[in-house]
Nucleic acid binder design. Structure first.
Lengths: 241, 241
DNA sequence: TAATCGTAAAATGTGCACATTTGGCATGAC
DNA sequence: GTCATGCCAAATGTGCACATTTTACGATTA
């Protein structure tokens, strides 16, 4: 009974996270049009929570640079330029060069086996035409590489770059083709097995340039305009009429 | 008259930043003992601002992982383990390996000149025994390297690593010797001039390992215990009696 | 008609009051 | 003497009311 609807200013640690995840997912899935305004009152209405809760989440997303916060003017979905995206890709490329340099020092059979198993998964997803799985596994490959170093700082940085590029790509890349080529990943693993740093880096570099080259400005993004429609499907509780 | 003391809940965009900078500087300068509790009420009293303002700043620092936030239990100065520090140093090392790999592709005379000029500064500071300048310039050298790539993402990441290692070092390293050796920096520039990636990375790696090897647990840190004393010197306005 | 200005409504930012939770301390039992 | 328990003060978390700023819109004028 008390769980059904808590009254006033009582603690509720889970709601913050729920709202955060909902908005974050909408961003990652490209459901929010770049440049769109995220005002606090309508969001509070949609999610059925207080305005300060929305406010907190919005500022958190702003601190993570996933939303563009302007003082006294609220939050907007960022509108990245092509240069912004190239910046993220270049950072990813540079980071992986460093990762590979370090990785050849401590590569062992177990690591190669794990990466090879991952490649098998990727190929399976590709051959059965599972696009969603392909995209996910494609990013996961690079995550596997950093995680092999066991360094929390580097892993966090890569995760940040990946999620940011996901959002950006949803704006600029046509949804028809956005997965890494599996054989390019395989070439990286091969170079690692051979302990050939220079080749690993070169292959990785080419790989990223290849992905990057597919980017192009796509104005006809059909992303939704109505906030209620976007979040309504994700979290359908609307109160306060 | 109205400017002298604003009444109630009026906008004041600058105070947030002032409090943030004050606490951040205290952290960077090692004035705050690791593990110390930063409660909201006393800080609000010390800085003469409302508790929510302190609260906002504390949570912001927590989001940047400069403070350790525990739900319902407030903020504490993090107590990094030696492994945490090694993690940061390793990340720095790996990142610089990637940076150098990319840098040899676009190194030119202008860049070499700039780096050489910086080395001259460093040597001057070292010979005249200016420790503060040496520490500052030592970090700045690595910043120069990433900035040469002109990539905002990478620059931000390095700045983050640097500031975090500053805080950590203030806990673990004896204050007697914490600067990079200038000639090691010089060796990196030399390798860059020769477009020798492998040598540049090797030298950089040795450099970081050398710095890291100086770390050791130092329990007798004399960091202040009294919050008012720490911040009183930085920002001496205390109101509310 | 287009541009400018003024006014009202909406949105953002902030202090405050209060609920909830935590931590310390004293009291008591074994 | 040590451990467990209950209570109280202090700290954290949150909704609310209100001040400030921005934005939208209509009226007036050239």
């Amino acid at each position: 009974m008390a769980t059904q609807k808590r009254r006033n200013g009582k603690a509720n640690p889970a709601e913050d996270e729920a709202v955060y995840q909902a908005i974050l997912h909408a961003l990652l899935e490209g459901k929010l049009k770049a440049g769109v305004k995220l005002a606090e009152p309508p969001l509070a209405d949609i999610f059925g929570v207080s305005r300060e809760r929305i406010r907190k989440v919005l500022h958190r997303l702003g601190a993570e640079r996933r939303l563009e916060m302007i003082p006294n003017r609220g939050a907007r979905v960022p509108r990245p330029t092509l240069d912004d995206i190239r910046s993220v890709y270049e950072a990813h490329r540079v980071l992986e060069a460093g990762v590979l340099t370090q990785l050849v020092r401590l590569v062992d059979d177990a690591l190669i086996d794990r990466l090879t198993a991952h490649l098998t998964e990727e190929r399976a997803a590709a051959t059965r035409g599972d696009r969603a799985a392909s995209v996910r596994l494609s990013g996961a490959f690079h995550v596997h590489l950093v995680e092999a170093l066991g360094n929390a700082e580097l892993t966090r940085f890569l995760a940040d770059l990946l999620s940011r590029s996901s959002v950006m790509v949803s704006v600029y890349e046509p949804a028809t083709d956005s997965i890494c080529a599996v054989d390019e990943h395989g070439a990286i693993v091969e170079a690692l097995r051979a302990r050939d740093v220079a080749r690993a880096i070169a292959v990785s570099r080419e790989h990223f340039l290849h992905v990057e080259s597919r980017l192009h400005l796509d104005d006809g993004v059909p992303a939704a305009e109505d906030l209620a429609a976007v979040f309504g499907a994700v979290k359908p509780k609307r109160r306060k009429r």
